[in-house]
Design a protein around this nucleic acid. Sequence first.
DNA 1: GATTTTAATTTGTATATACAAATATAATTT
DNA 2: AAATTATATTTGTATATACAAATTAAAATC
Lengths: 143, 143
Amino acid sequence: MKKLSDSHYCQCIYFTSNALARKIERIASQSWKKVNLSPSHGYLLMLIINEPGIQPMALSEELHLEPSTITRLIEKLELKKLVVRTFEGKLTNVYPTPKGKELNPRLKQCVADFYESYSAILGKEDSARLVRNITKIADKFVH
Amino acid sequence: MKKLSDSHYCQCIYFTSNALARKIERIASQSWKKVNLSPSHGYLLMLIINEPGIQPMALSEELHLEPSTITRLIEKLELKKLVVRTFEGKLTNVYPTPKGKELNPRLKQCVADFYESYSAILGKEDSARLVRNITKIADKFVH
DNA sequence: GATTTTAATTTGTATATACAAATATAATTT
DNA sequence: AAATTATATTTGTATATACAAATTAAAATC
């Protein structure tokens, strides 16, 4: 396959950031297949297990995803009986079910496997540096 | 809003690369609104204008998108009468229409505006460095 | 205490993207 | 030349995500 640096738009941040995200998404999806979840659902579930009763707003801020997206992700976890919602007034609390909690060790394993997979390709040093660089830059977005 | 670095997963390359891509996607979409195209469609159209008759396979490699995705993007540009396809055997050639070609200066303007928008937020130095870093890392993906 | 404003969440809808399968053609082998 | 294999493209289908609007409740103001 063509390298990214051979592309016309290899100096365009739109193109490169999206292409990178897609490539990483693929590897992550592979790692998360063992628990039959997409990476987004997996990370969301781990947050919910880590803080039972957490509210969609907090999840949205944590994951930098829109509230409506969080609702949709939760709906799917609910369908799979991994979480439940309780509604109190305008607030919603999300809790892991026993089935969800049981999954925790396997979720952690997915994270570990994912790390092994991508660092085998990208290198531990380089990918750690990239993450730091991305984080530093992304912090500049205020809204 | 919470900073990316305050998130639980700020050291996870899956999370950070996707979050960055989404943030940049937003800014890009804004810039491309003037021509009523999504950034993907805009960059695709520019490639087609630049190399009339280019085939889906080449576009796929250039943009690091799946062939089926290219088909879908082309379909939309076709609907808008910005490109046409000719079919020769198993190959397809994609050409800009006059209407498509006319758009070229405005497309370039979108690219320029996008650059101004994001570099105002991220800084020219830092974002250039990030792009180089991303490209270097992404080059390690062979498939 | 009634009214207005703000906030949290969900719903309706649209979109970009991918995977797997289908199609059709070209290239290779026998 | 026929049969097989490989290649380019499209189609069917699924999915994550977002935006805008709707809903509902809480908070603030009058």
